[in-house]
Deep mutational scan, measured.
Amino acid sequence: KRPMNAFMVWSRGQRRKMAQENPKMHNSEISKRLGAEWKLLSETEKRPFIDEAKRLRALHMKEHPDYK
């Protein structure tokens, strides 16, 4: 399984929150809205998620050196 990218790290928490606030909303609609919100974030707002994704990628490479 591939490590999560920055968007996936961010959206994991956001998706849960949005699903709780809008229980009838379909997952595909939640995904569209999350994608639009992510695009509006500044580089500074994205930075912690980018850093976490880098950390996860490095850990994955260490644990699975033969993974392509």
Results as ranks from 00 to 15, higher is better:
Lys1Leu: 12
Lys1Ala: 07
Lys1Ile: 03
Lys1Thr: 10
Lys1Tyr: 04
Arg2His: 06
Arg2Ile: 15
Arg2Trp: 05
Arg2Gly: 15
Pro3Glu: 15
Pro3Gly: 11
Pro3Val: 09
Met4Lys: 05
Met4Tyr: 04
Met4Glu: 11
Met4Ser: 07
Met4Asp: 15
Met4Pro: 14
Met4Thr: 11
Met4Trp: 07
Asn5Gln: 04
Asn5Pro: 01
Asn5Gly: 07
Ala6Gln: 02
Ala6Arg: 00
Ala6Met: 00
Phe7Leu: 01
Phe7Trp: 05
Phe7Asn: 00
Phe7Lys: 00
Phe7Gln: 01
Met8Tyr: 10
Met8Val: 10
Met8Ile: 11
Met8Ala: 14
Met8Phe: 10
Met8Asp: 15
Val9Lys: 00
Val9Cys: 12
Val9Arg: 01
Val9Gly: 01
Trp10Gln: 00
Trp10Pro: 02
Trp10Lys: 00
Trp10Glu: 04
Trp10Arg: 01
Ser11His: 00
Ser11Met: 04
Ser11Lys: 00
Arg12Met: 14
Arg12Ala: 15
Arg12Asn: 13
Arg12Leu: 14
Arg12Glu: 15
Arg12Gln: 15
Arg12His: 15
Arg12Cys: 11
Gly13Pro: 12
Gly13Ile: 15
Gly13Val: 12
Gly13Met: 11
Gly13Trp: 07
Gln14Arg: 11
Gln14Leu: 06
Gln14Tyr: 02
Gln14His: 06
Gln14Ala: 09
Gln14Asn: 04
Arg15Asp: 06
Arg15Thr: 13
Arg15His: 11
Arg15Leu: 09
Arg15Cys: 04
Arg15Glu: 12
Arg15Val: 09
Arg16Phe: 09
Arg16Asn: 13
Lys17Thr: 10
Lys17Ile: 10
Lys17Leu: 12
Lys17Cys: 03
Lys17Asn: 09
Lys17Trp: 06
Lys17Phe: 02
Met18His: 07
Met18Lys: 03
Met18Val: 06
Met18Ile: 09
Met18Thr: 04
Met18Asp: 03
Met18Gly: 02
Ala19Ser: 09
Ala19Pro: 02
Ala19Trp: 06
Ala19Met: 14
Gln20Lys: 09
Gln20Gly: 06
Gln20Ser: 10
Gln20Ala: 11
Glu21Met: 01
Glu21Gly: 03
Glu21Ala: 05
Glu21His: 07
Asn22Ser: 06
Asn22Thr: 04
Asn22Phe: 09
Pro23Met: 02
Pro23Arg: 01
Pro23Lys: 05
Pro23Tyr: 00
Lys24Leu: 12
Lys24Gly: 15
Lys24Ala: 12
Lys24Ser: 15
Lys24Cys: 08
Lys24Asp: 10
Lys24Pro: 08
Met25Thr: 06
Met25Gly: 04
Met25Asp: 03
His26Cys: 14
His26Tyr: 06
His26Lys: 14
Asn27Met: 13
Asn27Gly: 12
Asn27Asp: 12
Asn27Gln: 12
Asn27Ser: 13
Ser28Arg: 06
Ser28His: 07
Ser28Ala: 11
Ser28Pro: 05
Ser28Tyr: 15
Ser28Met: 09
Ser28Asp: 11
Glu29Ser: 03
Glu29Trp: 00
Glu29Met: 02
Glu29Pro: 01
Glu29Phe: 00
Glu29Cys: 02
Glu29Ala: 04
Ile30Ser: 02
Ile30Pro: 01
Ile30Val: 06
Ile30Arg: 01
Ser31Arg: 05
Ser31Leu: 08
Ser31Ile: 08
Ser31Ala: 09
Ser31Trp: 10
Ser31Tyr: 11
Ser31Val: 13
Ser31Gly: 07
Lys32Cys: 07
Lys32Leu: 07
Lys32Met: 09
Lys32Gly: 06
Leu34Thr: 01
Leu34Gly: 03
Leu34Pro: 00
Leu34Trp: 03
Gly35Met: 13
Gly35Val: 15
Gly35Asp: 15
Gly35Ser: 15
Gly35His: 08
Gly35Lys: 13
Ala36Ser: 08
Glu37Phe: 02
Glu37Asp: 09
Glu37Thr: 06
Trp38Gly: 02
Trp38Leu: 00
Trp38His: 02
Trp38Met: 00
Trp38Pro: 02
Trp38Phe: 02
Lys39Trp: 04
Lys39Leu: 07
Lys39Arg: 08
Leu40Phe: 04
Leu40Met: 14
Leu40Gln: 14
Leu40Ala: 13
Leu40Tyr: 03
Leu41Cys: 03
Leu41Arg: 01
Leu41Ile: 04
Ser42Arg: 03
Ser42Trp: 00
Ser42Asp: 07
Ser42Leu: 04
Glu43Phe: 05
Glu43Met: 07
Glu43Cys: 05
Glu43Gln: 09
Glu43Ala: 09
Glu43Asn: 02
Glu43Ile: 09
Thr44Met: 08
Thr44Pro: 10
Thr44Asn: 13
Thr44Gly: 13
Thr44Cys: 10
Thr44Trp: 09
Glu45Ser: 05
Glu45Leu: 03
Lys46Asn: 01
Lys46Glu: 03
Lys46Pro: 01
Lys46Gly: 00
Lys46Phe: 00
Lys46Val: 01
Arg47Met: 12
Arg47Gln: 12
Arg47Lys: 09
Arg47Ala: 12
Pro48Glu: 04
Pro48Lys: 05
Pro48Val: 04
Phe49Asp: 02
Phe49Ala: 06
Phe49Gln: 02
Phe49Gly: 02
Ile50His: 13
Ile50Lys: 14
Ile50Asn: 04
Ile50Val: 11
Asp51Asn: 07
Asp51Glu: 12
Asp51Gly: 03
Glu52Cys: 03
Glu52Lys: 00
Glu52Gly: 00
Glu52Asn: 00
Glu52Tyr: 03
Ala53Arg: 00
Ala53Ser: 05
Ala53Gln: 02
Ala53Leu: 01
Ala53His: 02
Ala53Glu: 06
Lys54Leu: 09
Lys54Ser: 09
Lys54Ile: 07
Lys54His: 08
Lys54Gln: 08
Lys54Val: 08
Arg55Phe: 04
Arg55Ile: 04
Arg55Thr: 05
Arg55Trp: 04
Arg55Ser: 08
Arg55Cys: 06
Leu56Cys: 09
Leu56Ile: 10
Leu56Asn: 10
Leu56Ser: 06
Arg57His: 08
Arg57Ala: 14
Arg57Asp: 14
Arg57Ser: 14
Arg57Cys: 10
Ala58His: 11
Ala58Gly: 11
Leu59Tyr: 09
Leu59Gln: 11
Leu59Glu: 15
Leu59Arg: 10
His60Glu: 15
His60Val: 11
His60Gly: 14
His60Tyr: 11
His60Asn: 14
Met61Lys: 15
Met61Tyr: 13
Lys62Val: 11
Lys62Ala: 13
Lys62Asp: 13
Lys62Gln: 14
Lys62Asn: 11
Glu63Ala: 11
Glu63Leu: 09
Glu63Ser: 09
Glu63Cys: 05
Glu63Tyr: 07
Glu63Thr: 09
Glu63Gln: 10
His64Lys: 14
His64Ala: 13
His64Ile: 12
His64Met: 15
Pro65Glu: 15
Pro65Ala: 13
Pro65Ile: 09
Asp66Gln: 11
Asp66Tyr: 06
Asp66Ser: 10
Asp66Asn: 11
Asp66Val: 08
Asp66Pro: 14
Asp66Leu: 06
Tyr67Phe: 09
Tyr67Glu: 12
Tyr67Pro: 14
Tyr67Gln: 13
Lys68Gly: 13
